[in-house]
Design a protein around this nucleic acid. Structure first.
Lengths: 119, 119, 119, 119
DNA sequence: GTGGTCTAGACCACT
DNA sequence: GTGGTCTAGACCACC
């Protein structure tokens, strides 16, 4: 199953976001092993090196931890995970409101638009 | 004044967005001449080639038209401009709601979050 | 000129060390541009990707800074550089003394041995 | 008790060094039997295969000899052992002095630094 | 020409 | 089979 990537953004960044979502949505659970580089490469239709880069970055960010010749695990630091969703939504909301205000909407406008939205 | 660009996204795309905002916000008015490539390059702290690419794209999209040796103008097609804001906000809103749902928020959650937001 | 690498240690780590030395020894001066990835790859007889990895790590450590399509520069933060030599020598000395003690030498022994050394 | 290994260096090389130290420090005495692969694997927290490789290498170097179905013994060649400490310290000292000179210290500097060291 | 990303394919140490 | 490293070769956005 090939994932559709936005060609304007580095794939490894998009993979990072996907995996973060999977952690937030508990598809990958605290302390659990995640699929191997090769499996993820297949799943995302990307090169193993690209996946490796994404995972290394997530490791640097403290979300994953790797065990040589064994596998990669979601960090078992509860607090690290608990703030993840908050961080993600904060960023998304801030960007959204900023973007909308930049094209001339007020906060009241924005709320009305979302209420009307069929999504 | 150097504009801050996201280094992960092509600069010419980011310039396009900025100019679209300026048209929506009527900083650049229907039928008006926009600043020269050189001026915009200086303003954005980007290379003239990059600005050129952004403007060419906007021309292709029908938002600008260029008059040889005179300058570039915002299109005078009224309808083209009138839908611009709607298109932009639709895209922004759709992306926002999709992103929020992907990390587990419902529409009701989203509205509450925006209402609470201090921005 | 091909550099000789220890095959037991990742090349990119060894390149990092070499470049750190070059900064400490002021071959690469504060704020100066360093050679391009391609030049360094040629110089070290390594693949450009390997060099890139080394340089990215040094960037993460705050020793280098890269400007897209322009080049890479030694950080201009004076303090960052000033502690570099101290850090390096501390690590080397600690490891050395630990290693020597582990095979049964006292500090007095160590000093005698160094004084006798012809290097 | 898990030994802490440098993840950048092959574990079997690090195990070899540890065992050499134990021979130098007479924890393992000339002609004595050393612990079994299984015991060492447990002690170092490494895989038996890895320990096996380290021991085979030490055999190749003439420091150990194995008796089939009985165990492994420290070589009883007195001269082989007697030079071991000298070889080890020579290597350590040479590397140390080279490293220090490469970051700009003179022999006099080096002696001062070691004398000041609290280790 | 410069940094950055990506693919394909390979080898290694380790479990 | 797993993570990690490396090479060769390519393309891109930007200056």
């Amino acid at each position: 199953m090939k994932h559709k990537f936005d060609s304007n953004l580095p794939i490894y960044l998009q993979v990072m976001e996907e995996i973060k979502k999977d952690i937030i949505n508990k598809k990958y659970v605290l302390g659990d092993k995640i699929p191997s580089v090769r499996e993820l490469a297949l799943y995302y239709g990307a090169n193993p090196n690209t996946i490796q880069k994404a995972l290394s970055e997530l490791e640097r960010e403290g979300l994953l931890r790797s065990e040589r010749a064994v596998g990669r695990y979601v960090t078992d630091q509860k607090e690290r995970i608990s703030v993840l969703k908050k961080e993600a939504s904060d960023t998304i909301v801030e960007n959204f409101i900023r973007n909308m205000k930049e094209i001339g909407f007020t906060k009241a406008d924005i709320i009305k638009i979302i209420e009307k939205s069929k999504l």
